[in-house]
Each structure stands twice: as structure tokens, then as C-alpha cells.
């Protein structure tokens, strides 16, 4: 009974793959903590994000079966991620535009110097 049955739908991921993915994820977690002690200058954030993106891809592809799934599901999730990045990039561009001209601690609506 156990192990002999086969599912009607879906894909059975081999245990070897599941444990391989977990091992890689744990190693990458160790790496991301270890490299946070080093200074890559302006690339610090990008190194951390790159490792996180790699780990996320592993979870999506193997734990969440996207590798074996119909491609339409992958399109949905990649599109939503792309729109989040677009949203953040747009907001950051706007912020960078105004930031150099901002007077710190000064908001015209608030009386900072009552005289």
C-alpha cells in the first residue's frame, strides 16, 4: 500500500530532490549571515537580495512544484513579482528626485519655530 499508489494528478517530487533543496537553502542561509559581516560597499544590499532571490527560486521551483506545473501558474507569480518591482522602482525614482532638495525637519504645515 504505502509507496505503491500513484496520484491521479500532480507530480511526485523525489525525496532526493526535496532534501537537496533543503540542504542548499540551509547553506545559503549560512552564507547570507556570513557575508553580512563583509563590506561590499554599495553592493551589500544586492548581494543579500541576490541570495534571497536564489533561495526563493528554489522554494518556488521544487517545494511549490512550479518546475513540474503548468506554465500558466508560473506566469501569474512572475507577473506579480514584476509588478511589485515596478511599483518599488517607481516609488524610489520619485523619492530620489525630491530628496536632495528637502529641508530636513521642515514641514510647512507644522509650526517648528513659534515666534
Amino acid at each position: 500500500m504505502a509507496g505503491s499508489a500513484h496520484p491521479r494528478v500532480g507530480h511526485v517530487v523525489p525525496l532526493r530532490v526535496l532534501f537537496g533543496v533543503l540542504a542548499t537553502l540551509l547553506v545559503m542561509t549560512y552564507v547570507t549571515v556570513a557575508v553580512s559581516g563583509y563590506d561590499f560597499g554599495r553592493f551589500n544590499l544586492w548581494v543579500a537580495l541576490g541570495i534571497a532571490l536564489f533561495k526563493a527560486s528554489l522554494v518556488l521551483l521544487f517545494f511549490m512544484h512550479l518546475k513540474y506545473d503548468k506554465p500558466f501558474n508560473a506566469i501569474i507569480i512572475i507577473t506579480s513579482l514584476a509588478f511589485v518591482m515596478l511599483f518599488i522602482a517607481g516609488a524610489l525614482m520619485d523619492v530620489k528626485q525630491y530628496q536632495p532638495n528637502k529641508i530636513e525637519g521642515y514641514a510647512p504645515a507644522i509650526k517648528t519655530n513659534p515666534q
Partner: peptide, 30 residues
């Protein structure tokens, strides 16, 4: 397949929900 499609759509809305918070994070950290 229909159920799974619905599930992935729900997960997409979850990503967008957290996306707003990640945006607040990005702007404030920048």
C-alpha cells in the same frame, strides 16, 4: 488544475499585499 490556478492567484494577491510594505521599507531605507 482549476483549484491550483485559484490558489496561485491568491498567492499573487498576497505578494502584492506584502509588496506595499516592501515599498515602504525601500523608500525609508533609501
Amino acid at each position: 488544475d482549476a483549484g491550483k490556478l485559484g490558489m496561485w492567484l491568491f498567492l499573487a494577491t498576497e505578494i502584492l499585499l506584502f509588496g506595499g510594505l516592501f515599498c515602504a521599507y525601500a523608500v525609508y531605507r533609501a
